[in-house]
Computed example of a mutant assay.
Amino acid sequence: MDKPHAVIIGVGDGLSASVARELAQDHTLTLAARSPDKMRDLAAETGAETVLLDATDEAGVAALFDALPRPPRVVVYNPSMRVRGPVAELDADEVRRAVEVTAIGAFLAGKHAARRMLDTEPVDGCRGTILFTGASAGVKGFPQSAPFAMGKFAQRGLAESMARELHPKGIHVAWINIDGAILNPGVSEPADRPGSKLRPEAIARTYRHLIEQDRSAWTHEIAVRPWVETF
């Protein structure tokens, strides 16, 4: 039997790479990102196909999903954009671009993933899983980080609305609140706070758990945080 297919949009060397390695065990993969450099080594390691993509370009997103040999079983949306600064000094065009990447791109991925998934027969009641990588900024806005909060709040609302619409149709949608800093390559933990950063391979196992959940107990939102994180 052919392996199910997973699409990961927004690929880097941290969380998305760990999710790709986790899913490559039993899925074929398509990786999408703006830069080929971010995907080259990971694609060679996982056997993934790669697509150059601006996640805010609907024609490009639609083409990505239309080119898949079959509807995807898993779609993960990772991109986001941060613009920092006092709200009275922020550039409106930069803010608009940040919200487009974080929220509009998520909408486009969700739209075209759902379009393809709805055109397939469910397996054990599930047509597929769509996961959005969120952040604590989606539940609490931080000072001098308004654009990131705007994008993540919008993304969270998108995921909840999609879940209410699509769960009854057999598509599992969930938003993952990454509530803490990730221990990405090149990042270290403070000597006095060991274990204070989220390990990307551990987060990837949470994505796996969501993908494998029984539909009688689907989660539409989950938070992951280090054991020392305050909340």
Results as ranks from 00 to 15, higher is better:
1 M>A: 08
1 M>V: 04
2 D>G: 01
3 K>Y: 04
3 K>F: 01
4 P>H: 04
8 I>F: 07
11 V>I: 12
12 G>F: 06
12 G>W: 06
18 S>V: 07
21 R>I: 11
25 Q>I: 13
26 D>F: 09
32 A>H: 14
32 A>L: 13
32 A>N: 09
37 D>A: 15
42 L>M: 06
46 T>D: 02
48 A>N: 10
52 L>I: 15
55 A>H: 02
58 E>F: 03
59 A>Y: 04
62 A>S: 15
64 L>E: 08
65 F>E: 11
68 L>T: 08
73 R>K: 12
77 Y>M: 02
84 R>Y: 09
86 P>M: 08
88 A>L: 14
93 D>I: 02
94 E>Y: 00
98 A>K: 01
105 G>N: 08
107 F>W: 14
107 F>K: 03
112 H>P: 03
114 A>T: 15
115 R>T: 12
117 M>P: 07
121 E>S: 13
124 D>H: 10
126 C>V: 15
129 T>E: 03
130 I>P: 01
136 S>F: 02
138 G>Y: 12
139 V>N: 05
140 K>R: 08
140 K>D: 01
141 G>Q: 01
149 A>C: 12
150 M>P: 00
151 G>R: 14
151 G>D: 05
151 G>H: 13
154 A>T: 11
154 A>P: 00
155 Q>G: 01
158 L>M: 14
158 L>Q: 14
158 L>W: 14
160 E>K: 05
161 S>I: 04
163 A>T: 02
164 R>S: 12
164 R>T: 13
166 L>R: 12
173 V>Y: 06
175 W>V: 01
176 I>Q: 01
177 N>A: 08
179 D>T: 02
179 D>Q: 06
179 D>V: 00
179 D>A: 15
181 A>P: 04
182 I>V: 15
187 V>W: 06
189 E>R: 07
191 A>S: 11
194 P>W: 05
195 G>W: 11
195 G>P: 14
202 A>F: 12
205 R>L: 14
205 R>F: 04
207 Y>W: 13
209 H>W: 10
210 L>G: 07
212 E>H: 05
213 Q>R: 10
215 R>A: 10
217 A>V: 07
218 W>T: 03
221 E>H: 10
222 I>T: 13
222 I>G: 02
223 A>W: 00
224 V>S: 06
229 E>W: 03
